[in-house]
Design a protein around this nucleic acid. Structure first.
Length: 225
DNA sequence: ACATTAACCCACA
DNA sequence: TGTGGGTTAATGT
């Protein structure tokens, strides 16, 4: 028997809340799937009977808008994907695609629900995760609509640096037009502002490699829009 | 909007 | 297995 769950962060993280028998239950009702970058992990409009946990990797969440595909946010494993989708509706309400190579754990929805039913601690853990994510959405929504493009781009760079890669040096995982889509700016604006940042010595760029040279100034730009 | 470059695929040797 | 050509996506201005 493969013991993928032993080192699966979704289990480790909630180990103290999951009783042993329930871990067993999880272990026999899940599948670990690897995704190469660019591949769909969750596809909008598809029927789903799984809860998806992103074990490793970075993925973008996007939803079909009236005209175009809209990037909503970037997530890094370990984290749950598609909880809201799964509980509200058995049809996925948005898509998730791997931006870097990913590893995801698909857990049978009924098993997941059964564990929620008789493990209050686990339920509370999930509710916390959902609340955090909802709060984050609200915060981002306010920022996106009120800040100028340069502030939003600064946010994105800081997000990459502080939350996704934990480094001042990283490769842009998505294209400039994707960033534009994400923060509601044209790719030209993104490109222009990146050039500004370079000439102001805030960042250095070599191909897709970004080096943040003046983080405090970037934080200032992020705050002041 | 246009020019340049990088990435990719495919036929062909 | 490697190379040239053609095509597309990404980028810089």
């Amino acid at each position: 028997m493969k013991n993928e769950c032993i080192d699966c962060v979704c289990v480790i993280k909630s180990m103290h809340t999951l009783q042993n028998c329930q871990v067993e239950e999880l272990e026999h009702n899940h599948a670990v799937v690897k995704f190469k970058k660019g591949n769909f992990i969750i596809r909008q409009g598809m029927f789903s009977t799984n809860v998806v946990f992103l074990r490793k990797g970075v993925a973008k969440i996007h939803i079909a808008g009236p005209y175009r595909e809209q990037i909503v946010r970037l997530v890094k494993g370990p984290t749950y994907l598609g909880l809201p989708t799964t509980f509200g509706d058995k049809i996925n309400q948005y898509s998730v695609t791997a931006v870097l190579d990913c590893e995801a754990c698909f857990i049978d929805l009924n098993v997941f629900k059964a564990i929620l039913d008789d493990n209050r601690n686990f339920s509370s853990f999930i509710i916390q995760a959902l609340s955090k994510s909802e709060l984050e959405s609200y915060r981002r929504c306010a920022n996106r609509t009120q800040k100028q493009a340069r502030g939003n781009l600064a946010d994105v760079l800081l997000d990459f640096s502080d939350h996704i890669f934990n480094s001042d040096e990283f490769f842009l995982p998505i294209s400039q037009s994707d960033i534009g889509n994400w923060v509601d700016a044209s790719r030209e604006s993104i490109n222009r502002i990146l050039s500004e940042f370079i000439s102001d010595d805030i960042i250095a760029m070599n191909g897709r490699k970004i080096t943040i040279k003046n983080k405090s100034l970037l934080q200032l730009i992020s705050q002041n829009g």
